[in-house]
């Protein structure tokens, strides 16, 4: 199993390395940052100085090696636009994205779980059917469209919630957080709900299916026969056993929630990494684009690795397969 873990780790490192090559080489082929960054009135000497300062006069492979060496030190280059390092920019914007994504995942559990359990307990009620039909929409509608509808309805027509931006934040541990004040929560509610819609639908479907399955089990029948209250049967015996797939999927989904926040952040002007990457793509701020892509790939490979590892620890069948 140790050998398996090491092999899995090497594989993960290989994927990250391969992605750095792809991202670096591919982005090298796009556009000429010199033309964008340098004042068109600059003299020849100034242009040459800027090129050598940015390291753009070196051959591609040497640029890549320099880049890789620096990346291992946590330095992914200087932003062409902001006078700071690309990684710095991402670290600055990351708390906003993480806060939004975590809040969205939390919402998906708070809303999806009870709705799904209810639909599982009473599959034929009108409410359950409406909710399940709604979950199909949650999957299939493009989230930016739903976000726009939210803005039209709740911000423009009803005026209950702000249409975008992050609003006031509280600084704790050197980072800005929205969830600590009521005003901040108001700004976070619409984008987080928007981001969580697909997750809500998925948690709902999983918990409905899980509830229906668990209800058939002998131990539930036994608990009922023992005379336990329905609340206890559902709250303890059903809930505990149907949570396993839900927890797995929600954990795995944190990564894709962060990826999809690119869309939500741009709809709601939420100042996170997703807004940063789109802005950077528009001005061809190459180091920031590279840093973002590599950072997200790294995050994903890490999450997948941890989930695989968790499976091995939790599921004896998988453990058996890896040791042979």
């Amino acid at each position: 199993m140790v050998i398996w873990s090491i092999r899995r780790l090497l594989q993960a490192i290989l994927v990250v390395l391969a992605m750095t090559v792809i991202v670096f080489v591919a982005l090298y082929a796009v556009g000429d940052p010199v033309k964008i960054m340098i004042d068109p009135d600059a003299t020849q000497a100034e242009v040459a100085r800027a090129i050598s300062y940015l390291g753009l006069d070196q051959p591609l492979w040497r640029q890549y090696l320099v880049f890789l060496k620096n990346a291992l030190h946590g330095d992914l280059g200087q932003s062409f636009v902001y006078a700071t390092s690309a990684m710095n920019l991402i670290w600055q914007r990351l708390p906003a994205t993480l806060e939004l994504a975590c809040f969205a995942v939390l919402l998906s559990i708070i809303l999806g779980l009870p709705l799904g359990i209810y639909a599982g307990l009473r599959p034929d009620s009108v409410f359950s059917r409406v909710v399940m039909a709604g979950s199909i929409l949650g999957f299939s509608l493009p989230s930016f469209w739903v976000g726009l509808m939210f803005i039209m309805l709740f911000a423009v027509q009803l005026g209950w919630l702000p249409s975008g931006g992050r609003g006031p934040t509280v600084t704790v541990l050197g980072m800005h957080w929205s969830f600590l004040t009521f005003e901040g929560l108001k700004y976070m509610l619409l984008p987080a709900f928007n981001l969580s819609l697909a997750n809500i639908a998925m948690v709902m479907r999983l918990s409905r299916a899980g509830t229906r399955e668990v209800l058939q089990m002998d131990y539930v029948k036994f608990a009922r026969a023992k005379g336990l209250s329905p609340a206890r049967v559902v709250g303890v015996h059903v809930l505990k056993n149907m949570m396993i797939p839900v927890v797995t999927v929600v954990g795995l989904d944190l990564g894709s929630t962060i990826a999809f926040s690119v869309v939500t952040e741009n709809v709601f002007a939420w100042p996170g990494t997703g807004k940063l990457i789109i802005e950077s793509i528009n001005v061809l701020d190459r180091p920031v684009i590279v840093a973002y892509l590599i950072f997200v790939v790294f995050l994903f490979v890490l999450i997948n690795f941890l989930v695989d590892l968790a499976y091995v620890f939790l599921d004896p069948r998988v453990r058996q397969a890896t040791s042979s």
């Binding site: 299939s140 509608l141 493009p142 989230s143 930016f144 469209w145 690119v262 869309v263 741009n266 709809v267 789109i278 528009n282």
Partner: peptide, 10 residues
């Protein structure tokens, strides 16, 4: 849906 999303993002 994906094309619409990407076009929305520019």
């Amino acid at each position: 849906a994906l094309e619409a999303t990407l076009s929305f993002l520019g």
